[in-house]
Design a protein around this nucleic acid. Structure first.
Lengths: 339, 339
DNA sequence: TTGTAGGCGTTATCAA
DNA sequence: TTGATAACGCCTACAA
C-alpha cells in the first residue's frame, strides 16, 4: 500500500547513469550501449519501475491510443448491432498487438468527437462504428476532418473517402441471392432497408437486384419488406408480407437478426424452413449456428475488417495516403436455405 | 489540418486573466467569480480549447480511467464467454456516465497487470473479467494488492475479499432446479464443471444439490456431466450421458451455450424438448430467445453487475471500505422447460 | 555513446 | 478572488 512510485531519476541513480540515458535505454533508442542498457533494465526491474505514460505522452506528443466510438447503446435492455461485438473484439486484439491502447466509448448523444478525443489528446485517432443519425454523423465526421484528426468509419465504403472500411456488401448479397436462385427459388423476398441513409444496406439491395436481373427475374415490389436490424423487425416484415398475400419461396435478409425473426415468424405460420421457404441472412453472428434450422448467411470477416481499420488509421496518423478498403465476404451454407 | 492546439495561456490572454485562473475556472473551482468564469468559458469556446488530459493527469495524478482486462481472446475464430459482452457494454455505459474513460484490453498471455496499468499510471483501477488460468490469475491479483492497486474481479464472491462482485450463482441455480422439480422432473442432469478452479460454477452446482436435497431427491453421479461453456461442450456432454444409457427428464446447464448445445444434441437423438426433456441454462444471452424451443434460463443482471463493479472500484480508488456484492439473478421461463 | 538543460501543459501552493 | 511560481515525470536537442 502507498508504495512511492520510482521515477527515472531513481533508476538513473541506481544504475549509475544520467536520467536521460535511462529514458533512451527504455525507449529502445539505438544510441545506448548494450552494457548500459542492461544495467538500466536491471535497475528498473529491481525497483519495479514503469514509465509514466502520461508524462511520456505529454512530452512526446505521441498518445499511442485509439478510440473506438460506438454510436449505439450497448447493454442488456438496449442491445446494439451484435455484429459490432466480434468486430470490437478483433480491433482490441489487433490494436493491442500493434501496441495501441484502446479507449472504447458508447456515444450516448451528440458530443463533440473532435474536442473530446482529438484536441483533448486522448487518442491519436478514432474508429467509428455505427451511426444512429446519419446526418449528425456526417456533421461530426466533418468536424474531425476539419481539424485534421485521423478517423476511419466502418461500413460506408465511399469512393474518394479514404477513411472508410466496409464489407463488400453488394457482392455478398449477390452471391447469397444467386445461390437461392441456383436452388430453384424464383420468388425471393428482400428484408431490409434500402434508404440512402444506410449505404451498406443499400448496397446489399443492389446485389439482390443484380442477382435477380442476371437470372432474368424481375423485381417484384410486393416482395420488398422494409425492415431494420432487429429480430422483431424481421418477424414483423414477414407477417406483413404474408398478410398481404405475397407469395415467396425464399427470404434474403440484410442481417442475421431479422433473418432469425423471419424464420420464427414463418414457422409460427406453419411454413417450413427450408422446405417451403429458404432463408439467408447477413453477418454470421455466432447465434446463426444455434437456430433450428441453422441459419445460412453471408459472413463478414471481422478479423480482416479490424486489421483494415487499424492499419488505415495507422497510416493516417503517420500522414500517409489511405485507400478505402472493401473486405470480401463469404457465403456460409447451413440448413436454412436447403440444398 | 495541422491546427495548432491552443493552451490555457492562449485562453488566459484572450480572457484577460492569468493562466492559473483559467485552470481554476475550467475545473469548476469554487474560488472564481461568476463573471470571470463566464469570460473564460467563452474564450475557450472561441478558440476551440480543450484541456490536455495528459498534462492534467501528470500534474494532478488523477487518471480518471478504468481498465477492463478480459482474460480471453475475443474474436470471430476464438470467441469469449459471450456473457462478458453485455457486461462490458454495461460497464462502458455506466463508467462513462460517471466520467471515467475505459481502457479495454484482451489479456493474451501473462503480462504483469500491476506494471502495465497501475504503475504505468494508465488507469486508477482494474476490472478483471474471466481468468483462463486460475492460479496465474491469483498470482497476478496478489501482485496488484501488494502495490495497493485498486481492482475488482467479476465472478468470485469470496467472503472476506472486498474486491469481488458476482451473481448469486447458488441461488440462481437453486431456483432453476427447484422449478424443474415443481414441473415434475425427477432425474435432472447437471452439465457443468464443479472443479474448485471455477468457484462460480461450483456455486451453481451447490444450488443444484440443495434443490435436489430439499425435495428429497438424491444426487446421482451418473447424471453429472463435466462440461465447460461452449455449445460443443454441451452437445458432447449430452451425447456422453445418452451413450452411457443415463435416464433423465431434465437438464440444467451452468451456461446458455452448453444448454443450447444440449438441446441440439437431444433433438438430433430424437428427444423432444421440452416434452421428453426440459432444459434450463444460465446467463440469458440474447440468443436464448432465438433457439427452437426458446431457452429458459437464469438471467444475470449485467446492468446491476456493472454498477456494482464500477462503484466498488470507485470506493477503492477513494480508499473507502468495500464489501463483496452478490447480484440477484432472475429465472426467465421460456419454452424449453415446459410448463 | 553519454550528460546537461529546457520544456511539454497542466494543477497546486503560496502570497497578495 | 486572483496571480506568480513551482512542480509533475519524461523526452529531446545540443554539447561533450
Amino acid at each position: 500500500m502507498g508504495v512511492k512510485r520510482p521515477t527515472s531519476f531513481d533508476i538513473a541513480a541506481l544504475a549509475g547513469v544520467s536520467q536521460a540515458t535511462v529514458s533512451r535505454a527504455l525507449s529502445q533508442s539505438p544510441a545506448v550501449s548494450e552494457e548500459v542498457r542492461k544495467r538500466v533494465f536491471e535497475a528498473a526491474q529491481q525497483l519495479n519501475y514503469t514509465v509514466d505514460v502520461n508524462a511520456r505522452k505529454l512530452r512526446s506528443k505521441k498518445i499511442n491510443t485509439i478510440a473506438v466510438l460506438i454510436s449505439e447503446d450497448l447493454d442488456q435492455d438496449n442491445p446494439i448491432n451484435p455484429f459490432f461485438v466480434p468486430l470490437l473484439g478483433a480491433i482490441l486484439k489487433y490494436a493491442g498487438q500493434k501496441g495501441y491502447d484502446v479507449l472504447t466509448s458508447l456515444q450516448q448523444q451528440s458530443e463533440s468527437w473532435s474536442s473530446d478525443y482529438g484536441f483533448a489528446r486522448r487518442a491519436d485517432g478514432l474508429i467509428l462504428l455505427g451511426y444512429k443519425d446519419y446526418d449528425d454523423y456526417v456533421r461530426k465526421a466533418e468536424g474531425l476532418s476539419d481539424i485534421g484528426e485521423p478517423w476511419v468509419v466502418w461500413g460506408l465504403v465511399q469512393p474518394g473517402a479514404g477513411h472508410s472500411v466496409g464489407s463488400d456488401n453488394a457482392q455478398g448479397a449477390y452471391e447469397a441471392v444467386s445461390h437461392l436462385i441456383r436452388l430453384g427459388r424464383r420468388r425471393i423476398a428482400f428484408l431490409g432497408e434500402a434508404s440512402s441513409s444506410h449505404p451498406e444496406f443499400r448496397d446489399r439491395y443492389d446485389g439482390y437486384v443484380r442477382a435477380l436481373r442476371e437470372n432474368g427475374l424481375s423485381i417484384d415490389a410486393g416482395l420488398l419488406a422494409d425492415c431494420f436490424i432487429s429480430r422483431e423487425d424481421g418477424a414483423a416484415a414477414v407477417e406483413r408480407l404474408l398478410g398481404c398475400g405475397a407469395v415467396f419461396d425464399a427470404v434474403f435478409a440484410t442481417a442475421d437478426l431479422p433473418a432469425i425473426g423471419a424464420m420464427q415468424a414463418l414457422q409460427k405460420q406453419g411454413r417450413r424452413v427450408p422446405q417451403d421457404v429458404s432463408v439467408i441472412g447477413f453477418d454470421d453472428l455466432w447465434a446463426a449456428a444455434c437456430t433450428t434450422p441453422a441459419l445460412s448467411t453471408v459472413r463478414q470477416d471481422t478479423t480482416a475488417a479490424a486489421r483494415a481499420l487499424v492499419d488505415a488509421l495507422d497510416r493516417m496518423i503517420a500522414n500517409e495516403p489511405v485507400e478505402p478498403v472493401r473486405v470480401p465476404t463469404r457465403l456460409i451454407i447451413r440448413e436454412s436455405c436447403g440444398g
